[in-house]
Structure formats: C-alpha cells, structure tokens
Simulated assay, not measured.
Amino acid sequence: MATCKVLPVPPAAKLLVVSPTEKLDSATVCSYSPSGLRDDLLFTIDCARPNSVEVVTPSSCCGLTLVYDAAALAYYVCNAATRAITRVPPYRDPTHASSAGLGFDARTREYKVVRLINGYSHEQEAVRCDVYTPGADCWRPATGRLPFRWTMSVVSAVNHAMMNRTQPVFANGFLHWLISPALLGRRPRAAVISFSVAEETFGCIRSPPFWEPKEHLRPWSQSEGEHLVVMDDQVCIVRNLRNGTPHGSALEIWGLLDYGSGGTLNHRIDLFGHIRRELGEPQVVRVIGSLGNRRSGKKIVIATSKHWVYEKFHKKVYTYDPSCQVLEEMLSVTETHDSVERWIPGSRFSLVEESLAPVHKVVE
C-alpha cells in the first residue's frame, strides 16, 4: 500500500440528505458533516410521501439540487445554502419512461429542468425533450430537435437511467446521459448523449476505448453499475468491474477530456481487504463526486446501497483517498423505500455546493 503524505485538510464536506419524518406527508432535508453527525435541518418538504422522495442530482448544480417525489410525480428545486425550495409544475405523460436532469444557463443565470421522454410505439415521436424554466407555469418542448439517427441511443439512455437509477450529470454547460450498450443490443459509436442547456441542442461523446465490439454481451452486473460522475469539472464514466475475480475486482473512473477522444483512465480503485468488503458486497455502488484538489488532497465520494429486508436498505457514504488507498466512512443509515423496482432504490444523497442561485424567478 502506498504511503499517505500529510497534506492540507480539504474544506469540510457538506452532504445533503433526504430523511423521512414521523408524519406521513412530509420529508426533511438535512446537511451532514464528514463526522457523520447531523449538522443542520435545512427545510421540510410538505405534502410529500417520505419513503418515495429521492435526490436526482448526485452533486449540486451551481448550488441547486433537484429532488423527486416518486409517489406524487413531482420535482422540486432547492438551494441548501439559502434554504429555498420550489415545486416544479406537473409534467405531461407521467406514465412514460423518462429521465430528468438539472442544468444551469450561464447566459440567463437561471436553471433549467430537462426531461427526456420515451414515447410509445404508436406515437409519432419515439423520444421527446421537455424543458422547465423558473417562473413558467408549465413545461415546454426543447428548442432543438433530436436527430433521428440518435433516437435509439436516447431510448437506451433513458431506460438505463430508469432501470439502474443512474441520473444525468451537468458540466460545462451540458447535461449528459449515459447510453447502455446492453440495452441497445450493439456497441454504439457514442457513449454519452449531451444536451446544451443554453442552446437546447443535442450532441454526443465518443465511446470509450474499453467498449469492445461485443460490449452488449458483458455481464449485466457490470452494465447496470456503469454511470456518469463529474470530477474536477470533467465528465467521467465509472466502469464497474466488481465481478469477484482477482484481476477484475475494481472500479475505474475514465475522464472524457474532450468529446472526441474517447476518454483516459484517471483512477482505478482496486478492491482488497477493507475496501473489498465495503465496496464489493453492496448491490449498488455509485461515485457521486470528489472533494479537495491535488494541492489540498483529493478524495473521491462513494455511495453504496445494500438490500437488507423487505423495503429496507443499508446505505453508506465513503470518502476514498486515491493517494494512499484509504476508505473512510462518512455516513451510515438504514432507509425504507416504497415500490422499489429490481431492488435498486433511488439516492437520497447529494454533495452540497454553497451558492446564492435563486430557485424562483427574479427581476433584476
């Protein structure tokens, strides 16, 4: 094991956590410190079913977080720093498979909630894209249309997000959805569908080098664990190699330096000893972001979920120091989730970023 150098301590992390209350119609949103102790009660979401509320954004977008109530089919945008929250108007076609993300338009200085929707076979459009902007009373179609040649890739990305609870991420003005070769049935030329929040147009990112021609034939456990994360303002693909073999028990983080390179390997977390037990056994492992930097000492933040009994799950959040390969527990909770499909519950964690970005329409 590598020797861990003494570096300046990175700024204390704040973790946003959604927790149920004793009431049947509300959920609380709290922030937690690295010690794992409750730091502060931020606000309460009233008229929400406690066990069905989840966090959509693994890390905040310019200080804003997108929360979803699966029972009420309602989205909320909140700011942990200002403790402001607003409910997004109801969206159309609630029965369709869909995936939503939160982005920020640097030109207007406002957020947008973007929802990709898979249509039914009898409908004219196989995929639609709806956008909500603050102050509007309803969703509207995106300005740009999806190129027809990318239709099946977007369908795959939406299904992957729904089935495996992998949400889109926002970076550098774009929302990003991961395409699943296993659901597409072939190796796609692109790995990620991107959406410009300002222009409302679509693009794509080239497939990484580890996606082979027979990529869709991989074990399903690897495919469902693959997800996107933003680290150092860079979109990364987390590759799941937790298959239990001596040479294949790892998590790899591939950074997409640009949209045409296909990615480079930034980090490899080998599972051994304590790390194997904590990251190898849970059914779900998600890298949700990073803290610090090279100077202060970077730490990778990892969330896990393990099915316990009935609708209860053991969930933990860790920090991993890649320089000395040390895994430290940040938070451990037991949660109840209603109507969980395939025993993959939604996340209730998000990294908090301090910002004064408003959640309501403001007049300057």
Rank of each mutant, 00 (worst) to 15 (best):
R140F: 02
T65P: 01
C62G: 11
A84D: 11
A72N: 07
P94R: 08
V53I: 00
R186M: 12
V309S: 07
H337Y: 15
V127E: 01
S26V: 00
K315F: 04
A27T: 12
A100F: 02
V155Q: 15
C47W: 03
K316I: 00
P219F: 02
L265N: 14
C138N: 09
A250C: 10
S305V: 04
H314S: 09
W211N: 06
A357G: 11
R87Y: 10
S59I: 06
R206S: 13
N79R: 05
A157E: 03
P50M: 02
V317Q: 09
G244T: 02
G203F: 05
N118L: 12
C61S: 14
R107L: 08
A161F: 01
L175I: 06
T82E: 03
H160N: 04
N51A: 13
P20Q: 05
R38G: 14
P90S: 10
D233T: 06
L183I: 13
L24R: 14
H227G: 03
V309Y: 06
W211K: 05
L271N: 08
D130E: 08
H314T: 05
C324S: 09
H160I: 07
A2Q: 14
T44Q: 15
V155P: 08
G119N: 03
T21R: 14
W308Y: 14
E311M: 11
L351V: 00
S194C: 10
L116V: 15
C78F: 09
G244M: 04
S350F: 07
T336D: 09
R145F: 04
A27F: 09
E353H: 09
T166Y: 00
N172V: 03
P147A: 06
G346R: 13
